[in-house]
Simulated scan of single mutants.
Amino acid sequence: MSLQFSVLASGSTGNAFYLETDEHAFLVDAGLSGKQMVELLGQIDRKPEDLDGIFVTHEHSDHIKGLGVMARKYKLPVYANAKTWKAMESHIGKIDTEQKFHFDMETVQSFGGLDVESFGVSHDAAEPMFYVFHYGGRKLALMTDTGYVSDRMKGIIKSANTFVFESNHDVGMLQMGRYPWSIKRRILSDVGHVSNEDAALAMTDVIGDATSRIYLAHLSQDNNMKDLARMAVQQTLEMKGFVVGDGFDLFDTDPKKATPLCAV
């Protein structure tokens, strides 16, 4: 049984994630234009016609920009909780009733052998939630767009084989940067985004013996850099006794380039 995935795009300009099992293929979010979504899938030699649905995390535009177009053009089922549906409906256009499905927070839905577990995060959206995917004894945890990582969240994602983990900003770059103070305050708040250092500290509580890959995701294009994020996370992990390259590795994500399709 094979669970494979790709971070199609990740960053402040748009987010999308692809996963497939032996039976199904799904997107999580479609935060780029429909044309860009098709191009990103093409980078991993996949086609939108083969998708079985889209799971939505929340209604911010960098997660739903291409959702309506993709759903309508390829007749895809869309899964979101009731508050997210209400918040995003005016932004995604009309979607046929038979394509609209509810996926409540803190529940599990099964698609063949794939169990999809939803969990809430702390972000300034209607009812933001992310997902853990269980298939064939493998566990893939996806979590960005949260101001902090609670013990409850840690318990749900703990000991995943692969993590896609928010590492949004360098605090110093953000504080010294061009954003107005109101936006800086929002990003740094409990309903904003996780910094490089806070991401690493949370990782120390969830990395397990079976963890092999951690993807640093949703990097700010203005307040972070790939090398900086990786260095900061690695240094913090090593201060806590975790050695990158000894059992697990760190990987970059990109706002315009899909990561190679990889088994969990």
Rank of each mutant, 00 (worst) to 15 (best):
E106H: 15
P128W: 03
G112V: 07
I64S: 03
M70K: 02
W85N: 05
E117Y: 14
V116I: 13
I156V: 15
N81W: 08
T144V: 15
V171P: 04
V69F: 14
M105F: 09
Y79G: 02
T84F: 04
V116H: 03
K158Q: 15
Q109H: 12
S122A: 11
D115S: 11
S110P: 02
T107F: 10
Q109L: 10
A160H: 04
H58N: 12
F119L: 07
H102R: 11
K83S: 04
I95P: 10
L140K: 01
M129R: 14
V108C: 12
K65E: 05
V171F: 08
K75M: 12
A141C: 10
S167R: 05
V78R: 05
G113V: 00
I95W: 07
I157L: 11
E59A: 08
M143K: 11
D115P: 00
G112L: 06
V116G: 05
D124I: 05
Y148P: 01
P128L: 02
D62E: 14
V171S: 07
L174N: 09
G137T: 02
K73W: 01
F111S: 01
F119T: 02
T84D: 04
A141I: 09
F111P: 01
F130R: 09
S110Y: 05
G155L: 00
N81I: 07
A126K: 03
S118R: 12
G155A: 13
V149T: 14
M88Y: 01
V164S: 02
Y148L: 14
Q175M: 11
I54W: 00
M153N: 13
M70G: 04
P77C: 07
F133V: 12
E117M: 11
D170H: 14
G68R: 07
F111M: 01
T162A: 10
L174T: 06
A80W: 04
S159F: 08
Y74S: 13
V56F: 08
H169I: 08
Y79W: 14
M176F: 11
T107D: 11
T144C: 14
M143T: 13
A160N: 06
L174Q: 11
G93E: 02
Y74W: 15
G93P: 04
D62I: 14
D124C: 03
L51G: 07
H134V: 06
L76Y: 10
V164A: 08
H123C: 05
I157W: 12
H169Q: 12
R138H: 13
R138M: 08
K75E: 15
R138Q: 13
D50Y: 05
F111W: 15
A82H: 10
V149H: 10
A141N: 08
T144P: 13
V149Q: 10
F103E: 01
S110H: 08
G68W: 05
S159I: 00
T97I: 08
D145G: 12
I92P: 02
H102Q: 09
L114K: 01
A87K: 01
H123E: 04
N168K: 07
D104T: 02
M105S: 14
G136T: 07
L67Q: 03
A125F: 00
S122F: 15
G147Q: 10
A87S: 08
G137D: 00
G66E: 06
M129I: 11
V78C: 13
F119S: 09
K73M: 13
H134D: 14
L51Q: 04
D151N: 12
A71V: 15
A82C: 01
D170R: 09
P128F: 06
S110L: 00
N81K: 07
Q99W: 09
S150P: 09
